[in-house]
Structures are given as C-alpha cells and as structure tokens.
Computed example of a mutant assay.
Amino acid sequence: MELLSEAYYSIACDYWVAYYLQWPRYHGLQEAEDCLYPYFELYRYGYNLHWTQSKLFIGRR
C-alpha cells in the first residue's frame, strides 16, 4: 500500500483526474466521448492546468 500512497495523494489533490478515473460510473455517458481524456493525457505527461476567469495556464510539474 505504501507503494501507491503518492499516487493516491496525487489523485486526491486533483479532482479532474479523480473525475476521469470515475468516468465509467456516469450512467448514460459511457457511450459519449470521454471529455476528460485530454486533461488526463496532459496530467500523465507531467503538466498542471490552472484556470482563471478568462485564461488557462499549462505548466510542468
């Protein structure tokens, strides 16, 4: 369990990643295109996203 503790913490701190991992739970949307996939791909490659009122900032972790 200790091996995954950093991964669990990382997921807990990023709601969008948690939403992506829960995508199959959303009834009626499973056939729809996974709109969270692009976000997860950026996360997977080490990028952070931060939204303000009118801008999106993408930076390396």
Rank of each mutant, 00 (worst) to 15 (best):
P38F: 04
Y47N: 09
Y39I: 04
Y47V: 07
I11N: 07
E33T: 08
L3I: 06
Y19M: 13
K55S: 07
A12M: 11
I11M: 08
Y15P: 08
K55R: 04
Y15E: 12
L36P: 04
L29A: 07
H50P: 03
C13I: 08
F40G: 00
Y19D: 14
N48A: 15
E41L: 12
H27Y: 04
L56C: 05
L56D: 01
L3T: 07
Y20T: 00
L29G: 09
H27K: 15
I11A: 13
K55G: 04
P38T: 05
A12C: 12
E33A: 09
R25M: 13
Y9E: 02
G59H: 05
V17Q: 06
Y43F: 15
Y45N: 15
Q53N: 08
Q22W: 03
Y26R: 12
W23R: 07
Y45V: 14
L3E: 11
E41V: 10
S54A: 07
D14A: 03
D14P: 03
Y15V: 08
Q22F: 06
Y37F: 04
N48E: 15
Y45D: 15
A18Q: 10
R60A: 09
Y19G: 12
G28V: 00
E6K: 02
Y8F: 15
Y20P: 01
I11P: 02
F40M: 06
P38M: 06
Y8L: 14
L3Q: 10
E41K: 13
Y39W: 13
I58L: 06
R61E: 13
D34A: 03
E33L: 05
Y45W: 05
D14F: 07
L49M: 09
L21G: 01
W23P: 04
S54T: 08
F57A: 03
L42I: 09
C35Y: 04
L3M: 08
K55D: 07
Q30F: 02
P38V: 06
R61M: 13
S5Y: 01
G46C: 05
I58R: 05
E6I: 04
Y8T: 12
Y43D: 11
E2T: 12
E41A: 13
G46W: 11
N48L: 12
M1L: 07
A32I: 01
N48G: 15
Y47H: 08
E33P: 01
S54C: 06
Y20V: 07
C13L: 10
F57W: 06
Y37K: 13
R25I: 08
P38K: 04
L4V: 10
A32Q: 08
G46H: 02
N48I: 11
L21T: 00
T52M: 01
A32V: 02
Y45K: 14
L36W: 09
H27T: 13
P24V: 09
